[in-house]
């Protein structure tokens, strides 16, 4: 088997790559559905219905996509610079911590200022959570993958400590949760009588800004240059370390915003389970979007559809809900292959 570089990369191949990857994942996932003894078409139909079939389902799918857009952007921008930030989960919780710290009465501003303020401190906290790993990488050459991964566990334990100790809401009947965010800081609802909040708008704005930065600014150019070829970037006068650090801080900031939107937008208070692994799923979102900030929106919506739909599907046909995670894991693997096939051709000889 020979792998050859294609001379021309056809745009339709790039557009088709995620579609093919998703199709392959669903096909492989159907083996697991058959194993349960359910009908594949019925199961997937239930999945789509559960995610898009009613206005309630639709708002749930959109709501679930908000943190995924943020963590997807976090992964996308970092991976663009080949900085493998796998710590989205921890940075998300740092953002949530900051929003809770400032949002539960410490600072009171009118809503028009309070919400941006919470988002700012959340983004800063998320970035700060990544400061140690990125500085260790740029200055001491410590691999960022392992440090960001391990910090996830440290941060989660720290949140657990705060919620069972000093930050515990005395009115929470013993549940480990924080006090509520003050009304000024709570994101307004986007759709009445649903859980869908303004975070969606912020996430979309975030994607547009991220895309514009990557496309039109020097920073974006430097990020792409460093990701493509760090030594060539260095030769052309780009400060590689500064670029990596900057990218990491932006990436951590986006992950922090995911935490803010879950606390101030969805829950209203901090618990230990505000994220069922959004930080890790963000990697899948970014990969499926081929690291393109605008495509992150679509891929986050798709993955959120799988999660929301799988919940109702598993209730109807008794398939374990873990099917959603399996599909997401499979799609990370299959998108790798399908993107490769846009750039290379396989020749059998």
């Amino acid at each position: 088997m020979q792998i050859e570089l294609r001379e021309h990369i056809a745009p339709w191949r790039i557009a088709l790559a995620p579609v093919a990857a998703v199709a392959v994942s669903l096909l492989l996932g159907s083996i697991l559905i058959l194993w349960v003894g359910a009908s594949v078409s019925e199961a997937y139909l239930l999945l789509v219905k559960g995610a898009l079939g009613s206005s309630f389902a639709l708002t749930e799918t959109f709501t679930r996509s908000i943190p995924l857009i943020f963590t997807g952007l976090a992964a996308a921008i970092a991976f663009r610079a080949r900085f493998y930030n796998i710590g989205g989960e921890g940075q998300l919780y740092c953002g949530a911590l900051a929003a809770t710290f400032f949002g539960t009465g410490l600072v009171t501003l009118p809503p028009l200022l309070m919400i941006p303020f919470l988002m700012l401190v959340g983004a800063l906290a998320g970035g700060a959570a990544l400061a140690v790993p990125v500085l260790l990488k740029t200055h001491l050459k410590v691999d960022e993958v392992v440090t960001t991964l391990l910090l996830n566990f440290v941060i989660l334990l720290f949140v657990g400590y705060l919620l069972e100790g000093p930050w515990k809401d005395p009115m929470s009947m013993g549940w480990p949760q924080s006090e509520s965010i003050i009304d000024e800081g709570v994101f307004p609802k986007l759709v009445d009588k649903s859980r869908l909040h303004f975070g969606l708008l912020f996430a979309v704005i975030g994607s547009v800004l991220c895309w514009a930065m990557m496309r039109f600014t020097v920073w974006g150019y430097e990020i792409r240059a460093v990701g493509h070829n760090p030594s060539a970037a260095r030769f052309s006068g780009i400060n590689v370390n500064a670029t990596v650090i900057r990218t990491a801080l932006i990436s951590g900031g986006f992950a922090g915003l995911a935490g803010v939107s879950e606390v101030a937008g969805l829950k209203g208070y901090l618990t230990l389970d505000i994220s069922p692994g959004f930080g890790y799923t963000g990697i899948a979102v970014a990969m499926l979007a081929q690291l393109h900030p605008m495509a992150v929106i679509l891929s986050a919506l798709f993955i959120s559809m799988i999660y929301v739909g799988a919940d109702s599907m598993s209730r109807a046909v008794n398939i374990p809900t873990y099917i959603a995670d399996v599909l997401v894991g499979l799609s990370v693997l299959s998108i790798l292959v399908s993107v490769m096939l846009t750039r290379y051709r396989l020749r059998w000889r």
């Binding site: 890790y280 899948a284 399996v326 997401v328 894991g329 693997l333």
Partner: peptide
């Protein structure tokens, strides 16, 4: 990372 996501959820 993909294998970790896939293998643990599987």
């Amino acid at each position: 990372i993909g294998i970790t996501l896939f293998a643990s959820s599987l």
